[in-house]
Nucleic acid binder design. Sequence first.
DNA 1: GGTGCCTACTTTCTTTTGGAGAGTATAAGG
DNA 2: CCTTATACTCTCCAAAAGAAAGTAGGCACC
Lengths: 130, 130
Amino acid sequence: MLATEKIAYDSNLPVDPRVEALVTELIGRVADKWTLLVLEELEDHGVLRFTELARGVAGISQKMLTQTLRAMERDGLVERTVHPVVPPKVEYRLTPLGHSLGEAFCGVWHWAGENLDRVEAARRTFDERG
Amino acid sequence: MLATEKIAYDSNLPVDPRVEALVTELIGRVADKWTLLVLEELEDHGVLRFTELARGVAGISQKMLTQTLRAMERDGLVERTVHPVVPPKVEYRLTPLGHSLGEAFCGVWHWAGENLDRVEAARRTFDERG
DNA sequence: GGTGCCTACTTTCTTTTGGAGAGTATAAGG
DNA sequence: CCTTATACTCTCCAAAAGAAAGTAGGCACC
């Protein structure tokens, strides 16, 4: 694991630029506020219905929730299960791939919690120097 | 370090909702495509000038680069050094806080590289069922 | 002394995206 | 017949992002 990281990050092996472009595109897709928040919500609660997600992810509109979930489903991050009943019931859960992304983002959540004070201090300094 | 992670992620300690809101806001700020790409570019190359960054971060407009760098500076992630010469020379480098965020995102880059194929396969499957 | 270059931005204009809120389908229950 | 419940979908408007041109100001060239 540490060895893998070393190989991936410390070496200057020439990387195929096509691969790099694809990785960049994927990062762009996945490094999105709502994707991250939905991922976290599903990590925490396991299986959730549409309205439960809407409640859990503060501030998201229905349109964005639908859009985010569709994109995540397409990327193989979430699994969508429709129960053909009335009123409709649709369940969302992370796939193993989604879980692995959640774990990858773990460090970022940790960072945010740990460094919140530092960022706020930096902002105050920046703002009063105007 | 592992113990810290355990405390942060596996326990169900009641978290102050105000803190959670702040963390969510910070995540929203920082989990941005361009921020991530600029961070990576600065991690890789150390000190860079404006135009070097513009070339390195494929597809970014000057406006977004300026905006992203200003926001990152405000958050204490990058340090901006102006050399009062003609033509202008401005250097950008990561602060220790910026480096720590870069390390936190390391896992995501790793994930993207490792799982690119899986995501592409998922997309093909999703699209042809479309 | 006019012309143009250099860099790091601004400014303006257009296109894309995001949010708010109403509408839709369906069946059970009163 | 009217309400309720759910998961969207649609429409309209505001906000954000992208493209391209403009700015400052000292320097070199002709």
